[in-house]
Deep mutational scan, measured.
Amino acid sequence: IRVFLPNKQRTVVNVRNGMSLHDCLMKALKVRGLQPECCAVFRLLHEHKGKKARLDWNTDAASLIGEELQV
């Protein structure tokens, strides 16, 4: 999953079965001084340019493999 972060940063996270978005993104956020409780995560909708859909931090990350997200 490719993730666009604040301050023009980005990362790619690996996903294993059973992991939530929170689990996958925790380290990437922590390294940058961010906390999931203070952030929202969105899936970028490529079929609708510029649109995005808000996701819950408990979403199964395996269902988002190959997607691009924005925090």
Rank of each mutant, 00 (worst) to 15 (best):
N17V: 11
T11P: 00
K8N: 12
S20K: 09
R16M: 08
D60N: 06
H46F: 05
A61P: 03
L34E: 01
N14W: 09
Q70K: 11
K8A: 12
K8H: 13
N58L: 07
H22F: 04
L21W: 05
K8T: 04
H46M: 09
A61G: 05
L34W: 13
E68K: 03
A53P: 07
V15A: 08
N7W: 03
A40M: 12
A28H: 13
V41S: 03
Q70I: 11
K30G: 04
S20D: 08
F42D: 03
H48Q: 15
V13T: 04
A62D: 06
W57R: 01
N17W: 09
H22K: 15
D56F: 02
L25I: 06
N17S: 13
L64A: 01
M19T: 09
K49W: 03
G33S: 04
D23G: 05
S20V: 04
L5M: 06
T59H: 05
E68G: 03
A40G: 10
L55E: 06
A53R: 09
C39M: 02
K30Q: 15
F4N: 12
D60A: 06
V71H: 02
K52G: 12
Q70R: 05
A62T: 13
N58S: 11
C39R: 05
K52W: 13
L29I: 04
T11G: 02
I1E: 02
H22Y: 13
N7Y: 07
L29P: 03
A62K: 08
D23V: 08
E67N: 08
R10D: 15
N58A: 10
H46Y: 11
K49L: 09
A61C: 05
G33W: 02
F42P: 08
F42R: 01
R2Q: 09
F4E: 11
V3K: 05
K51S: 08
I65W: 00
D56I: 03
G66A: 02
R54Y: 11
L29S: 01
A40D: 15
T11R: 02
L21I: 09
C24T: 13
A62N: 04
V31G: 10
V13D: 00
H22E: 12
H22P: 01
L55W: 01
D23E: 14
R10T: 14
I65D: 10
V3G: 02
E67P: 01
S63M: 05
Q9W: 00
L69I: 13
E67W: 07
K27P: 15
T11E: 10
G33R: 04
A28W: 00
L45H: 15
F42V: 01
N7C: 02
K27M: 10
K30P: 02
A62C: 13
L44P: 07
C24W: 03
K30R: 12
G33H: 04
K30D: 05
T59P: 00
L25T: 02
G33N: 11
L64T: 01
H22V: 10
I65H: 04
I1F: 09
V31Q: 10
L34I: 06
C38K: 14
W57K: 00
D23A: 09
F4R: 08
E67A: 12
H48D: 13
P6R: 03
K52D: 10
V3D: 03
N7D: 13
C38F: 11
V15I: 08
K30H: 10
V13Q: 01
M19K: 06
V31I: 12
K49N: 12
Q70Y: 13
G50I: 07
L34G: 01
G66T: 04
G33D: 07
N7F: 04
G50N: 03
I65C: 11
H46I: 09
P36Q: 07
G66Y: 01
V41Q: 01
A40I: 08
D23K: 08
L45K: 15
K52P: 11
N17K: 15
Q35K: 14
N58M: 09
R16Y: 07
R43V: 06
H46R: 15
K51H: 13
K49R: 11
V71L: 11
D56S: 11
N14T: 13
V71M: 06
E67G: 04
A61Q: 00
V15G: 06
A28R: 00
C38G: 13
K49E: 15
D56W: 02
E67I: 05
L69R: 04
N7H: 11
C39T: 03
H48I: 08
S63L: 11
A61F: 02
S20I: 02
L5K: 01
N58E: 10
A62P: 03
H22Q: 10
Q9V: 08
V3H: 04
Q70D: 04
Q70E: 15
I65M: 09
E67Y: 05
C39E: 00
T11A: 12
S63N: 12
R54W: 08
R43I: 02
V31R: 13
